[in-house]
Computed example of a mutant assay.
Amino acid sequence: MTLTCLCGAVCVTTARRPEFIHACNCDMCRKAGARWGYFDPAEVEVSGPTARYQRRDKAEAGAEVHFCPDCGSTMHFRLTAAAVAKHGDVMAGVNMGLADDADLAGIELRYPDGKAWSGEGAFGFYRKPEVIGADAP
């Protein structure tokens, strides 16, 4: 998949479609306007300049969000150095909100309750998952 920001200055290419997508309700994800698909970092290629943000409302940020410095589109995230030291460089997130729903048809959209998540263990969910495009005519 090839995804671009609104102005076209940043492009993210993935080797495949995500297995599922998270529409998390935590402050960072909600305010970034992101629906995350998860990939091995080797499966994601980014071209173009990005600005970065690490949340400051947690003692230790786990992700660094990258966005286009021109149009502000949230593009992807990478784990912070602290998270990599703890878990390894095991994940990159790509904002699937940049894709057309038609390109995501058949993928499950999940709703993790990041707002209530302690940062340890599995997520709870704040609503039932749905399959993108399942209600399309």
Rank of each mutant, 00 (worst) to 15 (best):
E45C: 05
W36D: 01
F39K: 04
M28L: 13
G37Q: 03
T50A: 06
E45Q: 14
K58S: 08
K31T: 15
K58R: 12
E43D: 15
C29Q: 04
S47T: 15
K58E: 10
S47N: 08
T50V: 15
T50F: 01
Y38P: 07
K31E: 12
A51K: 11
G33C: 12
R35I: 09
E45F: 04
D57H: 12
P41I: 02
G33H: 12
A34Q: 03
V46W: 00
S47D: 07
R35H: 08
A42V: 14
G37H: 04
D57E: 11
A32Q: 13
A34L: 03
K31Q: 13
Y38N: 10
F39Y: 15
D57P: 10
M28E: 07
W36T: 09
G33M: 03
C29D: 10
Y38C: 08
R55W: 06
R30V: 05
A34M: 14
W36F: 15
T50P: 02
T50R: 01
R35E: 04
Y53L: 12
F39A: 10
G48Y: 00
A32W: 13
T50K: 03
C29L: 08
G48C: 02
S47R: 14
D57M: 03
E43W: 03
A34G: 02
G37M: 11
R35S: 05
S47K: 09
E45S: 11
E45M: 09
G48T: 02
S47G: 05
E43N: 01
C29W: 01
V46S: 03
V46G: 04
A42F: 07
A34K: 00
V46Y: 00
A51Q: 13
R55V: 10
K58M: 09
R56E: 14
E43Y: 02
K58C: 06
D40T: 08
G37A: 07
E45A: 13
Y38H: 14
A34S: 15
Y38E: 07
F39S: 06
G48P: 04
